[in-house]
Amino acid sequence: MDSKEFKPRIVGFLCNWCTYAAADMAGASRKDISPSLNVIRVMCSSRIDHNLLLTTYFNGADGILVAG
């Protein structure tokens, strides 16, 4: 594999009640999802505050998905 290939690191904060359930359904339907996405389950997307977003960027995330 080309070591220079850009592999983004994306953190997805998914709401337990909606988006996480949708991700489950994507799994059950055998959709192809890139390993670049790192899912973290939260009980509601409203839980995500600027601290958590900044911490995620400081830890090297290329992108953040907040879905709920």
Partner: peptide, 23 residues
């Protein structure tokens, strides 16, 4: 749900089992 955690300007609220250190 943690809605209050996200909105608290002084950072004085935490949601058990979904605390900042854990996340």
């Amino acid at each position: 749900c943690g809605n209050c955690v996200g909105s608290c300007p002084s950072g004085s609220i935490r949601t058990r089992h979904f605390t900042n250190p854990q996340l």
